[in-house]
Design a protein around this nucleic acid. Structure first.
Lengths: 208, 208
DNA sequence: AATACTTATCACCAAAAGGTGATAATTAAA
DNA sequence: TTTAATTATCACCTTTTGGTGATAAGTATT
């Protein structure tokens, strides 16, 4: 029979499933991937681990579903693009700068990015593919037409910047040391990187 | 008593210690960090795990010693620098390009870099600090004097490039997907990144 | 209220992993 | 060659982790 339990009821499958998903997120944030043990997930969720097997099939399937629920990449798309007149210069710049800020603040995002480099889980590959698909829109509709035969170079520049942004933000969150002498946690250090991003994008557009 | 066992003897403490260290490296390369279990390390080393406790104190101390033996950063220093006349432009370029190539080929190096972002092991922090110290030499003696009040921007550009190189190389080795539409395993894709590196360094020097 | 069904817990097992005392085998010293 | 020290193995234990059958507790239907 279909159940539509009232809020506040003691037993609620949907709510329990969500608690497991939340537990995964919490453990990733606090302990790391290595903390994703069956018993610990259940303890954090406040439920019996048996339910994990009943509702998801096991830990791996739970984790896959967790990854699927993370639609991290929606923030990139932003507003609808009315085909800008500057070849996407302003849009590229603001996208990279907001990425630099966003990834720095969202430690869960950092963990997922790292995870993609460590584990060959299918769901993580799908996430990487989703990022690619999202970026492809920008490249194909805006920058490729603008740069013409230099389109590939622009893509390579962007690749370096995006990758650099990811790595620097993760580094900032996990390491105490400086990077190239810059304190990536400080306003001063981050501002230097932001200026460098804007500078490099400008130079790449100027060269066209 | 001090032992100086002849080569070929059946029992040899130094050789056994080395076998444990080698086993750690092999496991990191083939399985990954998660494979560093006490029993597995001993099995790969072909020795009893008890020796691991006797000789190193435990798995953690063994791993620390392994990290210490990895002097990954010697390859950067290269030749002695006779204070170049171009402000380090050629040197910066060739250093970044060789890093891009070197890290791509050395998967153990990739693993260590990743490890530094995951684990807050003291020995890994030391390694990061060693990289910083090594880079500081280049900055302070060559590029800072050249760029004057723009020294910080140059550092930020370099930070983005180095970080981007690390991330792209690790991504290339672990992910099958493209990155910004570039196949980072192919000659074509890698060449595009190399040209972008050279281009961006040139533009940064030209702007001075 | 009796019933069927869903949700949740418990007790328990098996496998994996970490850790150690006793002892054997080899080598060096006497 | 006897003795002492070192190197190495083995058997065994404990803890952690993953996994499941039996059953209780709540919810909906009649």
């Amino acid at each position: 029979m279909e159940e539509k339990p009232e809020a506040g009821s003691q037993r609620n499958k949907a709510r329990s499933k969500q608690r497991f998903l939340d537990a995964v997120g919490e453990i990733i944030n606090t302990v790391g991937f290595s903390g994703l043990k069956v018993n610990d997930i259940a303890r954090v969720a406040g439920l019996d681990k048996k339910l994990m097997y009943n509702y998801f099939g096991g830990r791996d399937e739970l984790i896959d579903e967790y990854i699927r629920t993370k639609d991290f990449w929606t923030n990139v798309k932003g507003e609808e693009n009315p085909v800008p007149t500057d070849g996407g210069r302003a849009f590229s710049k603001s996208m990279l700068l907001s990425q630099f800020d966003y990834v720095f603040k969202d430690e869960e995002m950092q963990k997922i990015l790292l995870w993609g480099l460590l584990d060959d889980r299918k769901e993580l590959k799908k996430l990487a593919q989703a990022r690619e698909d999202s970026g492809a829109l920008l490249f194909e509709s805006i920058t490729d037409p603008h740069f013409g035969d230099q389109a590939k170079r622009y893509r390579a520049v962007t690749a370096l910047m995006v990758a650099g942004i990811y790595y620097l933000d993760i580094y900032a969150s996990t390491q105490t040391t400086t990077f190239c002498g810059l304190d990536l946690k400080s306003n001063e250090g981050r501002q230097a990187v932001e200026e460098a991003i804007a500078f490099l994008i400008d130079k790449t557009y100027d060269a066209k």
